[in-house]
Design a protein around this nucleic acid. Structure first.
Lengths: 344, 344
DNA sequence: TTGAAAGCGTTACCAC
DNA sequence: GTGGTAACGCTTTCAA
C-alpha cells in the first residue's frame, strides 16, 4: 500500500504539527494569502466571490487557524493594548473593583486591557512596559519618573496616565491625594478633642507607597498644633494587633488613624479585647470605607477617598489616545471625606 | 546657511519623531543592524570590539531605543508569556493574594505573567487568548471547554492549566473542589444538630461560577437526610441583608451557610441586629477563612479551601512548559476543612 | 570583527 | 475579483 508522503496514517494521533498560519489556510483553500486576509477580516474594499469566501473559512476552521496578534501589530504599527502594571502588593478590594470597572469600560471602547506582572524593579520597569508597545499606560502609585514617561512616549504610547499623588512630567495625572486622607483623618480626630494621635502603618513591605503619604498628611495637618503624632507599625495578624494593644496603655495615646479599614478593624478588635473602650479611651478611624467597617461594633469611622470611576478613567484614556497633543486636562485633586460613625 | 536635510534646527522642539528601531541605532552608531542586535543581547558567540560596543550602547541610549517585543517574539517563534484571563468579577482577597504569589513565583522563573481583560464572552474567548501565543495559560473557573484547550494548544501553548472544579480534556487540572466547601459546611451544620439549613448565594451576576458548586455540594451532602436546604439570594449591601433578616423568623431556618465570609458577616450582622441569637437561634458559617471573620463577635465559623500556593502552581506550569508531553500529573482534589469558631 | 540577507506572520498597495 | 510583493522590527546563519 502506497503511503502518500507527509500524510500521516489516519489512525495516528495528530502529530504536534506546528501552528497553522494564514499561508497554510491559503494553501488548503487554493487561494493566495492576501485573499485569506481579506476574507477573514471582512474587508469591504475588495469583493471576493462567495464560493471563495466559503472555501477560505472552511479551511481556516479545519486547520484551527488563529491569527497571530504580534504579527498583526507589527504590520499595523500599533495596537489597542492598554497596559496596567500590576501593583507590587496584593490588591485591596477598592482597587480590585476599580480595575474591574476600568477593564469593562475600556473593553466596550474596543481596547484590550492587560495587567502586566512587573518583574524587574527599579528605573527600567518602564522599558519593559515599552517593549510591549502599548497605546496607553495606566500606572497606579509611584514608581514612574519623568524619564519613564519619556521612554514610553518615545515608544509610541499615546497616553500615559498616572494615578499617583504627585504629577509626573509628561503624563496625565489623576491626582489621587492620599495625603488628604491623612489630613482629613487627623483633622477629624483633632476636632473631636484628641491630642495624642497614633498613625498605624502596615508592617508589610511594599505598602509604604500608599501608607507614607497618608502618614505625611496626618503629620502635616497637625503640624504646629498642640497634638502629637506617633507612628506605629502593625502587621496584618491577630498576634501583632494583640501585642500592640497590650502595650497601648503605656503609650498614652487617645486616638488612632489606621492605614485603612482592615488594619483599623484588626486593631480596634484587639483594643476592645484588651479592655479599652472605643471611642471613650481611644478613638479609631480607618480609611477606604470598606463594607466590613460597618459590621463591627462600634461602627468604624472612616475616610473615603474620592476615586474616579473606572468608566471616567477609561474615557479619559480614550480621549488622550485620540488626541495626544491636547492639553493634559488637569483635574483638580481627588480629595477625601470623613465618614463619621461610632468609633470616633 | 545650508540646512542639512532631515536634520531639524537645533532649537526646534523635538518633533514627534517615530519610534526608533534597531536600524536607527545602527545608523547612528555606524554599524549594521546585526551588530546592534549582538551588542544589545550580549551575544556570547560573537565577539565585538569594546569600542564598537560602546558606540552602539551610546547610540541606543541617545535615541531611547527599546526593542519591540512583538517583533522579537515573531522572529523567535515563541515567548515566555503566561496568560491569565481576568475573572469576570472583581477579585476577592483570596484570589488577589494567590495571583500575586503566582506572579512573583513565575517572575523568578523568568516568565512574564499577563492578566488579560476578557472582552468577548462565549466560546471564542479561547481564540482571543490564542492570538497572543502565550506559552502557557492559567484559567480560573469554568468557561473553557475541550475545544478551547485544543485551540490554545494548536496555537503553541505548551501548557493549559485549569483551576476549575471539573477537569477539562487536554488541560492539566488543579481540581479546586468548590463543591467540597458546600459539603463540608452542610455536614458540619448537620452534625451540630441543624436541620433547616439555608444556603446564601450572591445576588450579583457572574458569581454563579463559584457559588453554584458550593450550593450543589451542600445539597449533595444533605441529600437523603432529614434536613432541608433552602437557597437564599443576598446582595452585598446592608439593605439587602436587613431585608433578609427581617423575614428570617418567617422562614423557620436554624442555620445558614453563606457563599463566603463576606456574605456571612454581612448577614450575621443583620441577623444580630434583628434580635436573633447566633448560634443559638441560627448557626452561621462562611467560607474562605478571611481575616475579618475573626474580628466580629461571635467569631465566624468558616470553611477553608485548600489552595495550592502560587509557588506550587508556578512550578507546575514551569514543568508543564518544559515537558508538555509528560503525563498530566493528576493531583488529588484540593478539599476543604471546617474551621469551627463561635457562630456555629 | 562585521555585514548582507533571509525569514517570522500579517496586511496593504498595485498589477493582472 | 484575485494574486504577487513589499514592508513592519528583529534575530541569526552564512559569508567576507
Amino acid at each position: 500500500m502506497v503511503q502518500i508522503p507527509n500524510t500521516p496514517a489516519p489512525t495516528m494521533p495528530p502529530a504536534p504539527r506546528s501552528v497553522p498560519t494564514s499561508a497554510d489556510v491559503a494553501r488548503l483553500a487554493g487561494v493566495s494569502r492576501a485573499t485569506v486576509s481579506y476574507v477573514l477580516n471582512n474587508a469591504g474594499a475588495v469583493r471576493i466571490s462567495e464560493p471563495t469566501r466559503r472555501r477560505v473559512r472552511a479551511a481556516a476552521e479545519e486547520l484551527g487557524y488563529v491569527p497571530h496578534a504580534a504579527a498583526r501589530a507589527l504590520r499595523a504599527g500599533h495596537s489597542r493594548m492598554v497596559l496596567m502594571p500590576t501593583l507590587p502588593v496584593p490588591a485591596g478590594p477598592l482597587y480590585s473593583q476599580f480595575v474591574h470597572d476600568f477593564q469593562g469600560a475600556l473593553s466596550s471602547l474596543d481596547y484590550t486591557v492587560v495587567q502586566y506582572g512587573a518583574t524587574g524593579q527599579g528605573d527600567d520597569e518602564a522599558r519593559a512596559w515599552a517593549e510591549l508597545r502599548p497605546v496607553a499606560v495606566l500606572v497606579a502609585g509611584p514608581g514612574l519618573g519623568p524619564e519613564g514617561v519619556a521612554v514610553l512616549k518615545r515608544s509610541g504610547a499615546r497616553a500615559v496616565v498616572t494615578l499617583s499623588p504627585e504629577a509626573v512630567e509628561g503624563a496625565r495625572a489623576v491626582p489621587l491625594d492620599h495625603a488628604d486622607v491623612g489630613r482629613s483623618a487627623a483633622g477629624h480626630l483633632y476636632a473631636r478633642g484628641r491630642r495624642r494621635i497614633a498613625v498605624v502603618v502596615p508592617a508589610e513591605p511594599g505598602m509604604e507607597m500608599f501608607s507614607a503619604p497618608r502618614l505625611a498628611g496626618a503629620r502635616e495637618a497637625l503640624h504646629g498644633s498642640d497634638a502629637t503624632v506617633t507612628e506605629l507599625s502593625l502587621a496584618y495578624t491577630e498576634e501583632s494587633a494583640a501585642a500592640l494593644a497590650a502595650r497601648w496603655p503605656a503609650l498614652g495615646l487617645d486616638a488612632v488613624f489606621a492605614y485603612n479599614d482592615e488594619y483599623a478593624m484588626l486593631l480596634m478588635r484587639a483594643l476592645l479585647d484588651a479592655g479599652l473602650r472605643v471611642p471613650r479611651d481611644v478613638a479609631v478611624i480607618g480609611a477606604d470605607d470598606l463594607m466590613l467597617g460597618r459590621l463591627l461594633r462600634p461602627r468604624l469611622s472612616t475616610v473615603r477617598i474620592e476615586l474616579p470611576s473606572g468608566r471616567e478613567l477609561a474615557s479619559l484614556v480614550d480621549r488622550a489616545v485620540r488626541s495626544p497633543a491636547a492639553a493634559p486636562e488637569s483635574h483638580e485633586p481627588y480629595g477625601a471625606t470623613v465618614v463619621q460613625r461610632d468609633s470616633s
